[in-house]
Every structure is written in C-alpha cells, then in structure tokens.
C-alpha cells in the first residue's frame, strides 16, 4: 500500500490534468451549450459526496456497535471529505443553475436535502471539535442519522416535482458524453480514496502519539 500510494497520486494528478481536454472535446449539449460542461465535475463531486456520507455513517455504525477505534478514524476522515466534496457540489451547482435556470438557488427537494445533509456532517465536525470528552460516540450517532437521510435525499427528487434533472439522466447519457463523464467520475473516486487513506493514516498517527504522551505521563 505504501509503495502504491505515490504511484496512485501521480495517476490521479495525470487524470485531473487530462480531464479538461476530454471535456473540451465532448459534444455540446443542445439546449444549454457550453454551460453544461460543468456537469463533468458537478455530478462526480455529488456522487463522491454521497459515497463519502455512506462510508462515514457505516464506519460510525461499526464504531458504535463494534467498538473499533479504527472505524472511528475512517468515519471522521470520511465526514470531513463529505463536507469538502459537498462544498464543490454547492459551489458548482449554483454556477450552473444561474446560467441554466436563471437563479442561483432553487428551493427544490434535491438541492434542499443535499444542503441539509451537508449541514448534518458540518454539525458532526463541530461536535467533534467542541463537544469535549465522549463526543466521538455522540458524533458517530449524528453520522448514522446523516447516512439515513441520504436515501431520503436521493428519492425526494423522484417523489416531488422539481426542476433538477432526475436520477435517470446518467444511464441514458449520450455515448459521446459518457466517456468523459465516467473518466471524471473515476478521477474523483480515485482522489477520494487517496484523500481518505491519507487522512485516516494521519488520524492513526495522531492516536498513537496521544497514547505515547499518556504513557509518558504515567
């Protein structure tokens, strides 16, 4: 793993460097034109955010019920990355919406519930930081609730009438757009895996350091 990590980092950088060329060469969407290109970063970032939220809540549940400190380290890293990728989604989304719908923000089900989920993980990090002793279990419960909200987020768009494209867009994508899209998706997932691994490792080192300090005091 340790040898593979730098190689994968180089691969990830190369993929992100190459992605703009693929996106430029992809065909223009008929109604939205150039603006639609933001899709290649917006949707992969959104999918990564959902993946990260699932990872965080499953890791939190494993920590709560299995009492494994390692799972907690994954949970806190994934929660931070959920907020990070959520920020990408919440910045690229309004930029696209301004051009496509004429407004920065729309109180539609999908947008609202994505924002809510992002806020839940924001409160996870806040609790973690300012909650004092015992906040690791508390915040784990918040993450489990955050994960439970994800299906509601995903289905809400199909349940309520909204302006946001439904989730059936991606499978029915034009073949010439599918290539760049899946390339970008892969790049985002790779970036996510690398960041998660690095962040979890950092957390593990921190835990070891803390244990050493405690040992010194005794």
């Amino acid at each position: 793993m340790k040898r593979l990590f730098p190689l994968l980092v180089v691969l990830c950088i190369a993929m992100f460097a190459y992605a703009p060329f693929l996106i430029v060469n992809a065909p223009y969407e008929s109604t939205m034109g150039l603006v639609q290109k933001i899709f290649y970063f917006h949707v992969p970032a959104a999918l990564t955010m959902f993946l990260s939220a699932f990872v965080a809540s499953i890791a939190a549940a494993v920590f709560l019920f299995g009492r494994k400190p390692g799972a907690d380290r994954i949970a806190v890293s994934a929660a931070e990355l959920t907020v990070l990728f959520g920020l990408v989604v919440l910045i690229t989304g309004p930029l696209w919406a301004r051009k496509a719908w004429g407004v920065w923000w729309q109180w539609d089900a999908r947008l609202t519930s994505t924002l809510v989920m992002w806020l839940v993980f924001q409160s996870y990090l806040l609790l973690r930081r300012y909650g004092g002793p015992g906040s690791d279990k508390l915040s784990a419960a918040v993450a489990v609730f955050g994960g439970a909200l994800v299906p509601f987020v995903y289905w809400s768009v199909n349940m309520w009438r909204t302006v946001h494209p439904t989730t059936s867009v991606v499978p029915t994508l034009d073949a010439s757009m599918r290539g760049p899209f899946y390339f970008c998706l892969l790049a985002f997932f790779l970036l996510y895996a690398l960041l998660l691994a690095a962040r979890t490792m950092l957390e593990a080192h921190r835990a070891r350091l803390e244990a050493l300090y405690l040992g010194l005091e005794d």
Binding site: S123, L126, L127, G134, L138, V142
Partner: peptide
Amino acid sequence: SRSRASLLPLLLYPI
C-alpha cells in the same frame, strides 16, 4: 457534554 446549550440546536435542526 460541556457545550450542550449551543450544540443541541445545531444537531437537532438539520436532522
């Protein structure tokens, strides 16, 4: 928890 007064609404409202 120490800071329960400020944290309860922060956790409760989003969920």
